[in-house]
Design a protein around this nucleic acid. Structure first.
Lengths: 197, 197
DNA sequence: TATACTTCCTAACGCTCGTTAGCCAAAAAA
DNA sequence: TTTTTTGGCTAACGAGCGTTAGGAAGTATA
């Protein structure tokens, strides 16, 4: 009988702790014994809650993918709004996901390659779909004369690149709130795309 | 007696092959036996040429750091030139290093954390110095009114982030030459910073 | 020709890995 | 109260890890 009700299920605790370790050391360099120790358990005990090490990685990667898609969908729901507005909202949604759980984001961005097939291919397909969504939005902006850029694919790549660098330097206790960061990034990145700044 | 003289020393061959594997699988997930097989050797034979697995990683990471600094130094040698020109040249130099050996670049960007101390700390200090160099250049541009940005640190971070995403998608056999890529990236990234485009 | 060096081999070292089997005590459900 | 479920434990499995020792064969040097 725990003195206080656990705020999270054991499985969720394992996911959280594993995510932090995967981020810090990388998936391959994180051992189940390390993970167990961090949780005050023995290694074997983990398997009462999970099926395998990779299952954790799978959950983290695909869970975050879902969040990114949900954010993008919400940001572009109002199809009649100016493309620039939709793009700004999509950027802010992306940043919100990144900052809400930067450890999981870092794992999502860097550790997916340790997924075995077919999960790895599925994951890459999702990532590609997401990138295409941004590219398409930018292309619409170009076609309607709202944005200017030499190349939509190029613009989408550099835009996502700038955003995805965030987990590398973001600190939750920094002096910028996630919303401020999102706003600044949107301003800066759209600055190069908009006609009238 | 090899039928043709080896274009590279065995050690250099090992470094090259290891770099490709480190990039594809990650440092921790690459075994010395895999590396040896790739070279047509047995695992033990590698140690006639190298001291340890980490030594390879060390050489790759610090070798590339040197190249980045040399490129930046050359790009900003003419101190009297406009800051925008220096910045453009620094961007192009950075891209040139990235494209000249994108495998080594990917390792430089992602696998450095598997360096053990004190190399890891030394590496991070170098990386920080490089980032500061860009930030300082941008700051000079702001001070002289040549550039505009809400925050020099922010601008430097997003700039390097956009550039460093390159090894993730660059293909040497793509339809853009490294110089074209460098030029486009410089245009696009300076577009958001310059007053008159 | 004798010597040293280079570059590979085989075999093995101690160690850590992810995972499983079997067991046990406490808690929950019946 | 009996039964089932939950969530731990210990011990061990087979496999793979980085690395080393010792030796063999070819090449270069003296």
């Amino acid at each position: 009988m725990p003195t206080v009700a656990p705020q999270r299920s054991r499985k969720a605790q394992i996911d959280r702790t594993a995510t932090a370790l995967f981020r810090a050391r990388g998936f391959a360099a994180t051992s189940m014994r390390e993970l167990a120790t961090e949780l005050g358990l023995e290694a074997g005990s983990l398997y009462s809650h999970i099926k395998s090490k990779e299952e954790i990685l799978h959950r983290v990667c695909f869970g975050l993918a879902e969040e990114f898609f949900a954010g993008f969908a919400a940001a572009t729901a109002q199809n009649s709004a100016p493309v620039a507005t939709q793009l700004r909202q999509a950027i802010e949604a992306h940043v919100r996901v990144l900052t809400r759980d930067s450890a999981a984001s870092a794992v999502f961005l860097h550790e997916w390659r340790h997924l075995s097939e077919p999960a790895r291919t599925e994951f890459l397909a999702l990532r590609d779909r997401y990138e295409v969504a941004f590219r398409t939005l930018i292309q619409r902006g170009l076609a309607q004369g709202e944005l200017h850029a030499p190349d939509a694919a190029f613009a989408a790549l550099t835009l996502l690149a700038s955003l995805n660098w965030l987990p590398a330097w973001y600190r939750p206790d920094g002096n910028l709130t996630p919303d401020e960061i999102a706003h600044r990034l949107a301003e800066q990145l759209l600055g190069g795309l908009l006609f009238n700044e």
